[in-house]
């Protein structure tokens, strides 16, 4: 394991790829490996990209890779797509949109299936970001599908979160209200060759003007709204400039920003702990003996499900 970690830190693609797989598969040693990677992390800037399917997130990622590479920086991409809730399988096709970077050694593209985690962010995504960070990638782009509340997840992991929208969807206030307005750092109206673009942009801007002053702390970053045509990289330079500006903003660590970070972190930590508890307990119960014994007694009415739950949990603690 130490060897694998060392190799990841030295930037070895195969080891990193393997470790991401172990994390994704819930390999028992991956938790330990991630801990060991910690001292080597923090160098990467994480850009989250989320929005409805077909909005052009992958195409946009590809254009962002162009710019990052022009600046001679390296980049990792995590493209997360939903797993089928019924079969657990998935078709992951985002690579196709980034195929022009296929042979660039400084671009590492990895597709992940959400494996039943809502919000597109799997615990593995966090781990995979860390692996890419530890490898020395300057940027990590994380693409997730989202059309509502779920987007919140990516925002907690990313330094800068882009919400990708398309013209015509602007009036879909329901989806907009449900969370994403709060978490997006930058709004991108992609497919901006469309005649409806101006309406959508104006609509979004008006929404931000209204929400700008609400909330307990004065908001000091009003999400800019940009137009792009990802297909031919129109507007990407401007977008990247804004991403840079946002990086400067976060480095100033304003009161508003810190409050938001704290809140995000707390949610994340609580989530992690409860997931870990869940895992550990599930593992202890895995053989089923204890459960089976009690199930029989519950059915015959000898004891009660509430009583059993309490006593089993006490025993495990």
């Amino acid at each position: 394991m130490q060897k694998l970690v060392d190799k990841v830190v030295s930037g070895d693609l195969r080891s990193a790829s393997r470790l991401i797989r172990m994390i994704d598969d819930g390999h028992p040693q991956s938790h330990e490996a991630l801990k060991q990677l910690f001292p080597h992390c923090g160098g990467a800037r994480v850009i989250g990209i989320t929005g409805p399917p077909g909005a052009g997130k992958s195409t946009l990622s590809s254009s962002l890779i162009d710019i990052i590479r022009q600046r001679n920086k390296s980049v990792g991409v995590l493209a997360v797509d939903p797993s089928s809730p019924i079969t657990g399988g998935a078709i992951l096709g985002d690579r196709i949109r980034m195929s022009r970077h296929a042979l660039d050694e400084d671009v590492f593209i990895r597709s992940l299936a959400s494996r039943g985690h809502f919000g597109g962010i799997t615990p593995a995504t966090r781990g995979a970001i860390r692996v890419m960070d530890a490898m020395g990638k300057d940027y990590v782009i994380v693409e997730t599908v989202g059309v509502g509340q779920d987007e919140v997840d990516i925002a907690r992991l990313a330094d800068t979160t882009l919400i990708v929208w398309v013209p015509g969807l602007g009036d879909n206030v329901q989806a907009m209200k449900a969370g994403i307005m709060e978490v997006g750092d930058v709004f991108v109206v992609n497919k901006a060759e469309h005649p409806d673009t101006a309406n959508t942009v104006n609509y979004l801007k008006s929404v931000f003007r209204q929400t700008g002053s609400s909330g307990p702390i004065q908001r000091d970053w009003i999400p800019p709204v940009l137009e792009t045509v990802a297909l031919n990289s129109r507007g990407i330079d401007e977008l990247f400039k804004v991403i840079d500006e946002h990086a400067q903003y976060t480095s100033r660590a304003s009161e508003y920003y810190l409050a938001r970070k704290r809140a995000d972190c707390e949610v994340e930590l609580r989530g992690f702990i409860s997931r870990e508890i869940n895992h550990r307990i599930s593992r202890q119960l895995a053989d089923g003996e204890k459960i089976n014994a009690q199930v029989g007694q519950i059915i015959t009415g000898e004891t009660d499900i509430y009583v059993v739950t309490d006593s089993l949990l006490q025993e495990l603690e």
Binding site: R100, V229, L231, N232, S233, R234
Partner: peptide, 10 residues
């Protein structure tokens, strides 16, 4: 002329 690469296959 339409802002695309000359050779899409690079």
């Amino acid at each position: 002329a339409s802002g695309e690469p000359y050779d899409p296959y690079g």
